[in-house]
Nucleic acid binder design. Sequence first.
DNA 1: TGTTAGCATTCTCGATATCGGAGTGCTAAC
DNA 2: GTTAGCACTCCGATATCGAGAATGCTAACA
Lengths: 341, 341
Amino acid sequence: MKIVLTERQEMVFKLIVDEYVRTAEPVGSRSLSKYMDVSPATIRNEMSDLEELGFLEKTHTSSGRIPSEQGYRYYIEKILKDIDDDTEGFFEFEKLFENRDIQRDEMIKEAINLLSQATNCTAISLGPNAYHSKVKKVQLIPLRDTQALILVITNLGYVESKQIMISEDMEMQELIKVIDLLNELLVDTPIAKVSEKLHYEIQHNRIKELLKYRDTIVDSFIEAFSKFAQTKYYLTGSSNMLYQPEFNDIRKLRDFIQTIENNEIFKIVESSTDGISVKIGTENHITSMQDCTVVSSTYDTGGGEKGTISVVGPTRMDYRKVIRLIQYIAKHIEKLYEEES
Amino acid sequence: MKIVLTERQEMVFKLIVDEYVRTAEPVGSRSLSKYMDVSPATIRNEMSDLEELGFLEKTHTSSGRIPSEQGYRYYIEKILKDIDDDTEGFFEFEKLFENRDIQRDEMIKEAINLLSQATNCTAISLGPNAYHSKVKKVQLIPLRDTQALILVITNLGYVESKQIMISEDMEMQELIKVIDLLNELLVDTPIAKVSEKLHYEIQHNRIKELLKYRDTIVDSFIEAFSKFAQTKYYLTGSSNMLYQPEFNDIRKLRDFIQTIENNEIFKIVESSTDGISVKIGTENHITSMQDCTVVSSTYDTGGGEKGTISVVGPTRMDYRKVIRLIQYIAKHIEKLYEEES
DNA sequence: TGTTAGCATTCTCGATATCGGAGTGCTAAC
DNA sequence: GTTAGCACTCCGATATCGAGAATGCTAACA
């Protein structure tokens, strides 16, 4: 069932959220009365009703009110409904995205830096990994007598390498043949299918040459291929938000740092669905994040891959600002990928 | 001038350091008397003398004693003098280094993980960067019509890449010529000298072909080269040490986290000289690290490059354990590099 | 001369008490 | 439906107190 608030309730609620976000202090009726032309007593009555509806909470019997999780949820739904596309206040970001001299990955990294600064929260970029791009070329480059470098390059420009030892009983001619064969087999194969394909070919004995070096060369290549599957992430700005009053409790502070260092935070971010997702407080299912909200947006790279931009901050964050920024950045990154293809 | 302590002073001092390291509490005369067969009063007299010599401190007029920076310094010098090479208690590490299936960089990373766990401190691995290795090969790999990947490979097996756009007025034949020329010029040139050499050649007009594409291709290559100069680092375990009592003060905790996130901590580690270096408290010149010690050891990669293994922890750390471990790990990494060359 | 017992003194730390301020809920009047 | 007034609650800052753990000093002892 849908709860409908009166206009004045709406106003009281919005004022409380805004004020609480600004000050981190429970909001009392008297301070609200300055913004409305009714008396504190009237506002108290409204507050009492809003509390009964589940939108507000008290920290103790005679404290002011703070928004509840449900309250935030309501507040955010309203924001998501009328997000504008205007870019007011995004000057730094526009300047960044207009810069043609910076490579895409660098640009994403810098956008994350700006995002964490602008929001005073932790900002995270996740993926995309190269798992779904296709093999473009496989190479072997001799470095010294006993050593060579194997290289794998994908159609999207990802590169992985691995050094290998060359024992004396391998002949260079033979090695080159192996590489040629691998190229023949693997070019245009999606990274995800490489291992499968190699095993298939080996089992069916189509490639006798490969077998001879199977243990060393082929395994090394498989290892190089598997590196593509690692998700690339970048996280920054956690120290900003630690100065927020919600982290005045030293245990919370420590637990949060640990959550970040253990990469637990990525579990939440990874699980986010397409489009914008907002996970408030207990919705995160991690104890040390019960006072935090994670806002994420995925972006599409065109190649079936998705990346994610996220902001982690106290539940008491400037949701409008955060959501607008994330959406803006995600769109622009998508555009970067489009331009390249 | 060299201060000589009596045997009993030596004993009192060592007991105080060990006890303080264990409990993080100032050590009183009565608790020491349990380990020595003299009365607390006698020990108090010794303590008083040791304080006058600058080895001990009080936290307030009637508190027990804690070691001073000078005291730690003395204690550490003694440890450094008689480090044994035995590997007692290093079982986990030995197991790791014996594993032939793991690549060097992965092994270093895992050793750093173990190091931070074993010491409850932050462990850091720095470098080596590829700045002093030599160009082995330069490549251009077409990806799509408008796009190509440039690759730079060094004799030590380092690889850097950069994607570039190919405008329509460039001809593939021409590009290949440029690459050939670059190879001719640069192979065997140390990365550090590449930029200089290119500029010299361009100025002296020896390479007309290059000029035509100077803005795009050559600059992109220079950018790829410059990536080699970036130091590679790995840091882990900062959340362990935050639970130590010296970080009970929330401001210290926050400031320390910030120091780590701002990479300031690397300034200290980078500046460490050859062999084992121990920087205690204020020797670090960073306010948020005044209660910390940084222990580092460099290791030699054989190619003129050096890497560093470091541990950052409270001044009250188990110095013997930390120093032995770091030395052991550094030696083994050096061995890994030797085996490869 | 070195060691030790005894004691006044100092300081920390946790528990308890006090008090002003901010805010609420309720009642009664407008 | 709104508002003034008032009793009540709770927080947080500050002060006070006492127990406990050390110390330094003095004087006695071997």
